Simulated scan of single mutants.
Amino acid sequence: MISILDYGAGNLKSVVNAFRFIGAEVEITHDAGRLMRAQAAVLPGVGSFGDAAASLRQSGLWQPALDFIAGGRPFLGICLGMQLLFEESEESPGVKGLSVFPGKICRIPDGDGLKIPHIGWNSLTLDQTDGLFRQVPDQSYVYFVHSYYLHSPERKIVSSHTQYGVTIDASVQAGNVFATQFHPEKSGQAGLQMLKNFARMAETGREGKGSC
C-alpha cells in the first residue's frame, strides 16, 4: 500500500488517480499509524511553503513523515512536497522545512520575458538513470507549475535538471527518498513510468541507487 499524506495542502485527487491508473494500491491518509504501516509514502503539495509547513505540523504528520523516511521505505515528494524536504525557502523567510536535504528554495528570477509562475512543459536532462528514471528517456517532457526552484548545494542528489531562465534542479533522489519539482501525475507516459518505478520499489522494498 502506498499512502498519500493528506495534510490539507496537497492536490491529492490527480496523484491518486494516476497511481490507480497504473494499477498501484493507494490510500489517502492523515493518520500517522496508517502511514507507518504503508510500504511507501507520497508527500504532495500546492500553495505556499510557509502555509504547507504549518499544515504539515498541525496535521500531526511532520514527525511521522521524518520517521517514515528514517525507516528506509520509499518516499516521494511532489512539487511543493519536494521543496518541503529542504531547509528553507525564500517564499517564507524564517519557516523551516523538513531539512531532509540541505539547501534553500529560491524564487525564479524575473527577466528575459519569462512568465512567473513557470507553468508548462519542459524537457528533462537526466543526471541519474536509476530510481524514478528507469526506462525514462533523456529529454522527456514533464509538466511544471511553480515560482520557486532548487539549485542544490549537494550535487550528488540531483537526478535531473531543466532550464527556465536559470538551471532548475528538477528532481532529487538519495537512498529511499525521491522528489520532483514537476508533476509526474500530469506528465504523460514519462510521468506514469516514474510512478510505475516508484510503485515497483514500494512492492519490493528496494531503494534507488542515488547517493545519500
Rank of each mutant, 00 (worst) to 15 (best):
M1L: 13
M1D: 13
I4K: 06
I4H: 08
G8M: 01
A9T: 08
A9V: 02
G10A: 15
L12M: 10
L12I: 13
L12Q: 06
K13C: 08
S14F: 05
V16I: 13
N17S: 15
F21D: 10
G23V: 01
A24W: 07
E25Y: 05
E25G: 11
V26W: 03
V26P: 08
E27G: 08
E27L: 14
T29Y: 02
D31A: 04
G33P: 06
R34W: 06
A38E: 07
A40K: 02
L43I: 08
G45K: 02
G50I: 03
G50C: 05
D51H: 12
A52C: 15
A54K: 15
S55P: 00
R57A: 13
R57I: 10
Q58E: 15
S59K: 02
W62Q: 12
P64N: 03
A65Q: 02
A65Y: 00
A65H: 01
F68T: 10
I69R: 06
R73C: 04
R73N: 05
P74Q: 01
L76M: 10
L76W: 05
I78T: 12
I78E: 09
I78Y: 06
L80Y: 09
L80K: 09
G81H: 06
G81Y: 03
M82L: 15
M82H: 11
L85F: 07
S89H: 03
E90S: 03
K96L: 13
K96W: 08
L98S: 05
F101D: 00
I105C: 07
I105Q: 04
C106T: 12
C106D: 13
C106K: 14
R107G: 05
I108W: 00
K115W: 00
H118I: 11
I119S: 06
G120T: 01
W121S: 06
L124R: 03
L126S: 06
D127Q: 10
D127M: 07
D127A: 09
T129Y: 00
G131E: 00
L132Y: 07
F133Y: 15
Q135V: 07
P137A: 10
D138H: 07
Q139N: 13
Q139D: 12
V142F: 09
Y143S: 14
H146Q: 14
H146F: 11
S147A: 15
S147K: 08
L150W: 14
L150G: 10
S152C: 15
Y164L: 11
T167F: 05
I168Q: 04
D169K: 06
D169V: 09
A170L: 08
S171K: 09
V172H: 08
Q173E: 15
N176P: 03
N176L: 01
V177K: 01
V177P: 00
F178D: 05
Q181E: 08
F182V: 09
Q193H: 09
M194P: 14
L195P: 14
L195I: 13
K196N: 10
F198Q: 04
A199E: 05
M201K: 10
E203G: 12
G210K: 01
G210E: 03
C212K: 11
